[in-house]
Design a protein around this nucleic acid. Structure first.
Lengths: 211, 211
DNA sequence: TACTGATTTTACCAATTGGTCAAAGAAAAT
DNA sequence: ATTTTCTTTGACCAATTGGTAAAATCAGTA
């Protein structure tokens, strides 16, 4: 005769067991959502991977979608962080190449999250429209202005800030999102893709921005 | 007492009706596979979109997977074409910026195919490992050599050919694969993304390659 | 130790989904 | 016109899947 636990974290206390199991579930879910997509993931799979029974999972999350949305929400802060750190007072070129490096590090450190994000956008961004249209859009506009000021002040070459940002996103995410293709083509052992990618991208954006 | 039609195109003749219906099915399937993924697509959806009943669809294709594989296979030739056309005798910088332009045109002209491809790679490239490891890999190696020769001959700046190719793929595909995000951020009407993307990318790769 | 609330399990369901089958209906060929 | 071959449909099914209900078990605490 249990009353379901607070499924929306309204409660004040989160027990040790809750924290542990919620983490188990989210980790298992991230693993499968990011490699088979939302529809390709079953609760049974999450159940097996997390070691918790299916009804037990639904004791912590009210639905499959709820798990997915939670995962997506957990991403957002980390997603904004590197761009947030772009500093208008710093040296323009190194501010931007540092941004590239941070994005590349994130793609390398959180490939599952990166794929989850990519998959969500690819499929229409249904659960993230709100985030993109508000937080992300505002931040991008703000930083576009910073970049544009640099252009106007003659500190970097004339670039379209928006397209600069888009191409940074594209190039840095590519390495985690298209990992499979890259591994197959470059022959897994022959080199360390990340290291050379970093050099390549730094070079590319430096050359693009230098006067 | 019908005997199922040649489901593997072994037969010599393809009737007018067959051609029409196969196209209807493939078009409907491409639409849904590319926007909801393989698992997010149901035969019923394809059935509705194509106007053919579900058993009728399975009269032309022996399974859902068969439709998907057919779609993927139809992509491959077009996928290789732009890179194939990279000519070792041409002017290096314009050969490469032309390649960029062709890839961008393809992403623009075939966004559904582009997303289908992206989704397949993201989810582990199960149906395309063979293509990637053989045809694509060989072509990439060949063209990497061409680019490397240009570097050695001092015709372009020193770049890692593989990473150059990867970043071209990344930047050009980004515009169709992440279309939703781009639309939401750039505010659909404010500019024509494709036109400016083309300028931006041409500029970027020219600056990267120029001595 | 006994109580109380939190956690987990067992048994189950209704809906969806990929796929089958045999018969009915068109087209083409004779 | 009739036979033969190709095409389409209606009825159906077994497996999967997200989710529920209630009982059973466990943990913490008075």
């Amino acid at each position: 005769m249990a009353k379901p636990v607070n499924q929306h974290k309204r409660s004040n206390s989160v027990t040790r067991i809750q924290r542990k199991n919620i983490n188990l579930i989210l980790d298992a879910a991230l693993e499968t959502f990011s490699s088979h997509g939302y529809n390709g993931t079953t609760l049974d799979e999450i159940s097996i991977k997390s070691g918790l029974s299916k009804p037990n999972i639904l004791y912590y999350f009210k639905s499959k979608k709820d798990i997915h949305v939670t995962l997506l929400n957990n991403l957002l802060d980390n997603w904004l962080k590197p761009l947030k750190e772009l500093n208008s007072d710093g040296d323009p070129v190194s501010e931007i190449t540092n941004y590239v490096q941070k994005k590349l590090d994130m793609a390398h450190e959180f490939p599952r999250e990166s794929r989850l994000f990519a998959m969500e956008i690819l499929q229409g961004a249904n659960h993230m429209k709100n985030f993109i249209e508000s937080d992300l859009k505002i931040l991008v506009e703000q930083k576009s202005n910073v970049i544009n000021d640099w252009v106007v002040q003659g500190l970097i070459a004339k670039v379209d800030p928006l397209h600069l940002i888009f191409s940074i996103w594209a190039t840095t995410q590519h390495y985690s999102d298209f990992e499979e293709q890259i591994k197959l083509i470059s022959g897994r052992q022959s080199f360390n893709p990340d290291h050379r990618a970093s050099k390549h991208l730094k070079e590319m954006y430096t050359r693009l921005l230098r006067l």
